[in-house]
């Protein structure tokens, strides 16, 4: 509620458009008011992609599954990078699922504003709705993929190829999912803000995400990287490392590194805050520069 002095009496205004908005004010109330739009945009993103494809939403599962099979064959079977006692498919899926969530958010949010530019120059809505809807739509596929993982795990458990039984560790999974989402959203927002102004980032991002994958323990476990080396340091400072390792720890029963998990959590919160604030800052001029 904002009030302003006008002709002696206090007047109530519903909206005050003021370029001097403080940089730290995040208008979450606006996002809440536009929640219906948010949900409809998520629906649009989910529906529109698979229209006119025969397998439809099945692709949500097929994509990471095929990637995992490919990794299992190339890196697990041929390069012997997997973990003994764990089926290759599960080992790679446990990392590919969270990784593709991260990569998809970064790649897609970076483009949302440019994609939605016709919308942005014609109508007002809280701009952050666009990247949030992308994150939500992507997270739907993530959860479907996670469910698929558990189905495969169950299959391997029944056939006896995978000995692990899930216990209380599973309660940590939502925390990891939140960490992953925060990290991806934060980076996504930062990249969105940058791509809107400097289109060059669109090309950098696809390459950067690919590079980042090789610096994260996706195709190999962290334990296979020689300790004390430069490469090990780079991988350890990568905020995605604790997330991927955490997923493997919970899903495959591998050892959990708590201190790196805390580092990852701090990075996630920092990235999210930085992303939201930077986005708020650049948001005002989006319509003028896209």
């Amino acid at each position: 509620m904002k009030t302003a002095m006008g002709s002696g009496k206090v007047e109530h205004w519903d909206v005050v458009v003021d370029p001097q908005r403080p940089w730290w004010r995040v208008e979450l109330g606006e996002v809440w008011r536009y929640r219906d739009l948010l949900l409809l945009l998520v629906r649009r993103d989910l529906l529109a992609v698979y229209k006119q494809s025969i397998l439809g939403p099945l692709w949500q599962v097929l994509q990471p599954l095929l990637t995992s099979i490919m990794f299992a064959v190339i890196f697990g079977f041929m390069a012997r990078m997997g973990e003994p006692g764990i089926p290759g498919l599960l080992f790679y899926m446990a990392a590919v699922v969270p990784w593709s969530f991260f990569a998809n958010i970064i790649n897609r949010t970076g483009q949302t504003l440019v994609f939605n530019s016709t919308l942005m120059t014609k109508v007002y809505y809280p701009r952050i709705i666009s990247p949030i809807s992308t994150v939500l739509a992507t997270s739907v596929s993530f959860f479907v993929q996670l469910a698929a993982y558990f189905l495969f795990a169950l299959y391997y458990q029944l056939t006896g190829a995978f000995a692990m039984r899930y216990g209380a560790d599973l309660l940590l999974l939502p925390v990891l999912v939140l960490m992953l989402t925060a990290l991806a959203t934060g980076f996504g927002l930062i990249i969105t803000s940058l791509t809107t102004k400097f289109r060059d980032f669109t090309f950098l991002v696809t390459f950067g995400v690919q590079l980042l994958m090789f610096m994260s323990p996706v195709i190999f476990p962290l334990s296979r990287v020689p300790e004390g080396g430069k490469l090990r340091m780079v991988i350890e400072y990568n905020p995605m490392t604790p997330v991927i390792e955490g997923f493997r720890a919970i899903l495959l029963g591998m050892p959990m590194d708590w201190s790196s998990l805390i580092f990852g959590g701090a990075c996630a919160i920092g990235a999210l805050l930085a992303g939201v604030l930077l986005f708020q800052r650049t948001e005002r001029s989006f319509a003028d520069i896209v």
Binding site: A4, H12, W13, D14, V15, V16, V17, D18, P19, M120, T121, K122, V123, Y124, R284, S285, A287, D288
Partner: peptide, 12 residues
């Protein structure tokens, strides 16, 4: 859709 550079707009 875009913000003013200076000044304010109030709406009810």
């Amino acid at each position: 859709i875009s913000l003013p550079t200076k000044g304010r707009i109030k709406l009810k």
